[in-house]
Design a protein around this nucleic acid. Structure first.
Lengths: 128, 128
DNA sequence: TTCTTTACTCACTTTGGGATGAGTTATTGT
DNA sequence: ACAATAACTCATCCCAAAGTGAGTAAAGAA
């Protein structure tokens, strides 16, 4: 009689709980998706097409690359535009102001990581 | 004869590939673990014991809290010290300089999120 | 001696991110 | 008609993060 048998996964519930507590949890979840910031960085550096990005990361699959580009566009971190007069229609990506500001913060994070890295070892000693 | 049958999971291989490409990927993976930055923030604000943290996040389990505290200590983001003269021996946590500098960057990220958030909707329109 | 509280740890199950293989649309070259 | 290339999408499987239940050590209180 007592146990009402919980229906919903507390996994996704907790994600919502955290997002409700503070927006930054959503931001963290978004930017930590694998390859995402790396792709954004490359686009900002001029490696701006599907195929050139693929060459930049040989172990990154088409599927994830396409997914990440779609996400980045949906979040307005990059824009996509057709390159005219190309044999198979091609697309060039470019970072937005929003994307460039994010990259600046990621760079701060990078510097923080370097600053506090213990020599000869990772700053994170937790087993993975 | 051709296919040499790959042995290792490309999943963890790719994590290493990314970490080798740039340290910041490791940092991103670390700080985006659920509850981690939230716990660090609370400790910095003075909510500094196991039980008080548990009360602060009712849906956070003991197990994950213990795990996160262990990680935070291993990464030198917090320190742990005994409170003397307490009935069951108690522990108080405190942020380190490294932890406080990280929180400052997380705060930047928070501001970035607020700045670019589209009104009435999430800045992230990708389905989860 | 048993109860309570703090601060954990272990074993098991679930969930969703990420990898893989195959298929799709569009356009030009042969 | 068929091949080639760019830029994707879909279905399926795997694995590690995260959740759940239970148990532990230490120290005093009843």
């Amino acid at each position: 009689m007592a146990t009402p048998r919980k229906e919903l996964s507390t996994n996704s519930e907790n994600r919502q709980t955290l997002a409700a507590a503070c927006d930054v949890n959503d931001v963290l979840a978004d930017i930590s998706l694998r390859w995402k910031m790396q792709i954004l960085y490359c686009i900002n550096e001029g490696v701006a097409q599907f195929t050139t990005l693929k060459k930049a990361f040989p172990t990154l699959s088409d599927q994830i690359l396409g997914k990440r580009l779609k996400e980045l566009r949906a979040e307005s971190l990059i824009t996509a535009s057709d390159i005219p007069e190309t044999t198979p229609p091609q697309i060039r990506y470019a970072t937005t102001e929003k994307g460039r500001e994010l990259l600046a913060i990621i760079l701060d994070l990078h510097h923080w990581g370097l600053k506090w890295k213990t020599v000869g070892n990772n700053y994170c000693t937790v087993n993975r």
